[in-house]
Design a protein around this nucleic acid. Structure first.
Lengths: 117, 117
DNA sequence: CATAATGGTTACTTTTTAGATACTACAGTA
DNA sequence: TACTGTAGTATCTAAAAAGTAACCATTATG
């Protein structure tokens, strides 16, 4: 049963780290380029400020995202992926591909590209 | 921006399908062998009957799990992975490996094996 | 002097999720 | 006759998550 218990731990850990409501989407956007808080907020359109802050704080606490504060007025805060953060991108790409296949086969939707460009 | 919107759809879809509280663990157990409801319940020790039923119904609705009811008394119901269900196992294994690496590097825990045996 | 912009925090409320408990059908067994 | 086992469902409650709105500091601009 060691396979079971270690599974439980490690997949649960991964889901805790990237499974949050906005986390994978944040990581995805940051995988393209460093972004400011307001830029992220615009890209996630329906996210509330509170949720974006919260999710970013958790990603930062887990070491996936780096937060750089510039001493300016008005303040500027930039978010970027750490090396650890970049290491989850292949998982996101795999999930993206699976989701795409799933939609195609089970719902007959038009094919979609993962990470175009 | 088509990369972004298609990302949102497909990774979100994948997370909806396998991101539930017990789903990935259920899939993991079923990847070894077909199990009855009560067998799954014992393996997931702390799951409530309601949650197990609910998660299984959703997995079934998404086509990952097959539910076979035998007309016996007392009733016997067996759950197994469909082909689609088996196709998510590599993602689970990847998440398992990432979680393992994450625990090792960020928390200095003892190494754990993914899917021993 | 009032307003805008940035990147938040805090308090309060609503919504969602999960837990606990009781109940069901049916046949076999004591 | 009462009890057991299976695989649930239904209902009510508690806890967690998320939304809403107001507030903060600072400086530049009008």
């Amino acid at each position: 049963m060691s396979d079971i218990s270690s599974y439980r731990c490690t997949v649960a850990v991964t889901l805790e780290v990237i499974g949050g409501k906005w986390k994978s989407l944040i990581l995805w956007h940051l995988s393209f380029k460093t972004l400011r808080f307001s830029q992220l907020q615009r890209r996630l359109s329906t996210v509330t400020q509170k949720m974006l802050t919260q999710q970013l704080r958790e990603l930062e606490a887990n070491g996936l995202v780096h937060r750089e504060v510039y001493a300016e007025v008005p303040p500027r805060v930039e978010y970027s992926l750490t090396e650890l953060g970049r290491s989850v991108v292949p998982i996101l790409e795999m999930m993206c591909q699976w989701g795409k296949d799933y939609l195609e086969t089970s719902e007959g939707q038009a094919p979609q590209e993962c990470r175009v460009g």
